[in-house]
Simulated scan of single mutants.
Amino acid sequence: MGRGHAPHSIAFSPDGRLPATASEDRTIRLWDVATRRPIGAPLTGHGYPVVSVAFSPDGRQVASAGGHDFTARLWDVATRRPVGIPFVGHGDATWSVAFAPDGSALATSSADATVRLWSLDRPADPVAALCEIAGRPLTPAEWARYVPEEEYQQVCPPQTP
């Protein structure tokens, strides 16, 4: 495949026609096998090098692990856009992603010595679900890091001691 983007990981779509790479330059690239060239612009959104990619069993989504940004993300292969908000919750680098065989869940592993299983039955309004996902309100700094496309909101009820 191409040079200059230092891929960390590669995965093929279930039909074997579409590889995706996770790259040092913080991107995910989809490739045309015949031409050995990227298809369109890279997928961007991670704050650090992307270290792992995996296709959903139906091939319509690709998941990525952002290493030191502590997140995993889902991407729509057809539109090349993020699906929902990043998966946050690991306390250290997120190293790998894998889909459940039926596509209902995403597993992530981390340098914090944990594996998390994320349900892909995501809410229609993911911003409103941040309280449940994070288990607490996000600080403005966390919001800027994990939901940069949205203006900061306090969407969780205040916690009582």
Rank of each mutant, 00 (worst) to 15 (best):
Q61A: 09
D32V: 03
P49E: 15
R17M: 14
V53N: 01
A129C: 07
I28D: 00
D25F: 02
S119N: 05
P126V: 14
G2P: 12
G47H: 12
P82T: 13
H46N: 12
G2Y: 02
A65S: 12
Q153P: 05
R145H: 08
V62T: 13
S52F: 01
P86R: 03
G16S: 15
F70A: 06
P157L: 13
A128T: 11
W95S: 11
A111F: 00
T108S: 02
G47Y: 01
R29K: 13
L117H: 06
I133V: 15
P57F: 10
A78K: 09
S96L: 03
C156Q: 00
L138Y: 03
E142I: 11
R26N: 14
T44F: 11
P42V: 07
T79H: 11
G47V: 02
Y146S: 03
A144Q: 14
I85D: 02
G66V: 12
V83P: 05
A107M: 12
P137V: 08
R17T: 15
G103P: 14
G40C: 08
G91P: 04
E142S: 05
S119Q: 05
P7L: 00
R145Q: 15
A98M: 05
A128N: 05
R3F: 06
L117V: 15
Q153Y: 07
T44S: 15
H90S: 04
L30M: 06
W143Q: 10
H68P: 02
S9Y: 00
A54N: 08
L130A: 04
F12K: 08
P158A: 04
H90G: 02
V77Q: 03
D58V: 00
L18K: 00
P7H: 00
L30A: 07
T35C: 06
V97E: 00
Y152D: 04
A113N: 09
P38W: 06
P38H: 13
A93I: 04
P42E: 05
R60N: 14
V50N: 09
A98Q: 07
V62M: 12
A93F: 10
A98K: 07
P19E: 04
S104P: 12
H8C: 02
T21H: 07
D112N: 09
T160G: 00
P161Y: 12
A78H: 08
S9L: 00
A128M: 06
M1K: 09
